[in-house]
Write a protein that binds this DNA or RNA. Structure first.
Length: 530
RNA sequence: GCGCCUAUAGCUCAAUGGAUAGAGUAGUAGUCUUCGGAACUAUCGAUGUGGGUUCGAUUCCCACUGGGCGCACCA
């Protein structure tokens, strides 16, 4: 990796200063702010020339090095080098985690997309990755659901759809407004469920089956596979041990009949409720213990919305109190909002994923009516996923139909299109471009070719940065820049039949390779033709 | 009330304390005898307000204003 080589050189020569990419390309490939010129850096064989300007030492890389680094991408050697980043390290990532008895909304889509991309990124960096779908399949919500099913359910549970369950859940909340006793009934039923009541258990089981069927369809459509789906109910028999640990440490306190843990700088977390039922906080603590016991991870990532940040911080702090010390991180992705303001899900304004996909499919069909359905779907889903991944996860995301379905400009389909375009050019080439990669004559690169060539070696840096910042958007932004550079080049020059055909095929093939690898990291399908 | 996050072009987003703040979209004007026009070229257009730290601030600190989220028996 060029950056590491330069850093090493600077260190050996005792020169302080961070290496960065200059804001403007005419200032070189790298720059170090040193205040005074670095004299003998140009003797380093990877450096073509240096120039001192305005306190910066600007560095231009040797073309042969640029080409070598570009050739390497995707080879075994490249993969091996990447793998060193996460050598002997394990991470667990908690993502997607939809709630049973609620349809898959666009909120969980965000967790699923970002979580899967982070998983892929850590995996290519050599980490042992464990994905866990922490399904919301336990809790008082089932008490509510049981009450609603028994009171207003028109069919037997077996015949209900996930929409029926959602309707009943919503109805429960409407009725509670005028009849507060329903809350108590719900808690009572959850208590029965926790104590093994047969009727409660049977209804609960049916709800789970209905939901899982829906979720699995969604995951298949999205092309997402999560290693484990250990829902909250999985930890039922693992909670008492954690309670005991808390008691032994003396951190469990009684408060108004409930058991809580207090923190110095945060509100307390409830562990056990007044009626002795468990909370999701306790189940999450049992989850941490199980993950430590089972996989001994160095890092546990939670890809959960910002609305649960306090909850996560409480888990991390309580874990520390119990002496559990892996590195924790919560992505805390921003909430989805309308352009106009609040995104209220409580008044039937939930947007279901199926609706989003339907509209995007219609849009993709408009552009390419002759495409077969699979391709249209891949493009539509590419657009939707990219919309989620292209921006910093921390920030709220504005839900805008036009933008979600956008197929041009900064979009997933723009990248897919550029890939297909590269492949089309390569298919028309008479020479075997695979051979060219290690075997062609170096000619002068014109401005556009040179600008493109100088993008490739950055790919590795961007993958690492994306992992460090837990932000797939780093890669998304990079791919957009690369595709734009390719299209700028493509718009000005022909490839086939030109004097520089070989090196242009090389640039084309490398562009397709990086786009493919990058899009795969983001979980977006690439198409040879579209 | 307290805590966390956030404010960049009409709109949606970029920019590890550094050089001329980048894209897309919308608008305007073009490219079209062409390897894929889901493209390319040109043009228009921005750091909420007030302080501070620094040689240098979109970036760090403080205050204010606006927006989002959270703060015990939902998860």
């Amino acid at each position: 990796m060029i950056k590491k080589d330069l850093e090493k050189w600077l260190q050996e020569n005792k020169i302080e200063g961070k290496i960065e990419h200059p804001s403007i390309s005419k200032f070189g490939d790298y720059a170090v702010r040193t205040g005074r010129p670095i004299e003998n850096l140009s003797k380093n064989e990877i450096v073509e020339k240096t120039e001192f300007m305005a306190g910066f030492t600007n560095i231009w890389l040797n073309k042969n090095v640029l080409i070598e680094e570009t050739e390497k991408i995707g080879t075994e050697e490249w993969q091996k080098e990447l793998n060193k980043n996460g050598e002997n390290k394990t991470m667990v990532i908690d993502y997607s985690a939809p709630n049973i008895a609620k349809p898959f909304g666009i909120g969980h889509l965000r967790s699923t997309n970002i979580g899967q991309a982070i998983y892929n990124i850590y995996q290519i960096l050599g980490w042992k990755c464990i994905g866990d779908n922490h399904l919301g399949d336990w809790g008082t919500q089932f008490g509510k659901l049981i009450v609603a099913i028994k009171k207003w359910g028109e069919n037997a549970v077996e015949e209900m759809t996930i929409e029926d369950l959602e309707t009943l859940y919503v109805k429960f909340h409407q009725e509670v407004e005028t009849d507060e006793k329903l809350e108590d009934e719900a808690r009572e039923w959850f208590s029965k469920l926790e104590n093994g009541d047969e009727e409660a258990k049977s209804i609960w089981q049916k709800c789970i089956e209905i939901s899982l069927k829906e979720f699995n369809q969604v995951y298949e459509l999205l092309g997402v596979k999560i290693d484990y789906a250990l829902g909250e109910s999985f930890y039922l028999d693992k909670m008492p041990a954690v309670v005991k640990l808390m008691e032994d440490k003396g951190i469990l306190k009684n408060s108004e009949g409930a058991k809580i843990i207090e923190f110095e700088k945060m509100p307390p977390a409830m562990v056990i409720k007044t009626n002795e039922t468990t909370t999701y906080f306790l189940r999450d603590m049992a989850t941490v213990k199980y993950r430590l016991d089972t996989w001994n991870p160095d890092l546990i990532i939670y890809e959960i919305g910002a609305d649960q940040e306090l909850h996560c911080r409480q888990i991390f702090e309580a874990s520390k109190m119990l002496g559990w010390t892996p590195q924790f991180y919560n992505v805390a992705h921003g909430m989805i909002r309308w352009k106009e303001g609040k995104f209220s899900t409580r008044h039937g304004q939930t947007i279901h994923l199926s609706e989003v996909i339907e509209k995007a499919v219609a849009e993709a069909k408009k552009i390419a009516p002759d495409n077969d359905e699979n391709k249209i779907k891949a493009v539509a889903i590419g657009a939707i996923k990219f919309n989620d991944l292209a921006q910093d996860p921390k920030r709220d995301i504005i839900f805008d139909w036009e933008k979600v379905m956008s197929m041009d400009g900064n979009s997933g389909p723009y990248l897919q299109y550029t890939y297909a375009r590269c492949k089309s050019v390569l298919a028309k080439a008479k020479t075997n471009y695979e051979l060219l990669i290690t075997n062609y004559e170096l000619k002068t690169f014109n401005e556009e070719e040179s600008a493109l060539l100088r993008e490739f070696y950055k790919f590795e840096e961007k993958i690492i940065e994306a992992a460090e910042r837990f932000s797939p958007s780093v890669i998304a932004e990079y791919l957009l820049g690369l595709a734009r550079k390719y299209n700028e080049f493509y718009g000005k020059f022909r490839v086939i039949g030109e004097e520089n055909e070989e090196q242009r095929l090389f640039l084309t093939e490398r562009t397709s390779k990086v786009l493919k690898t990058g899009l795969e990291l983001l979980g977006i399908e690439v198409l040879e033709k579209m």
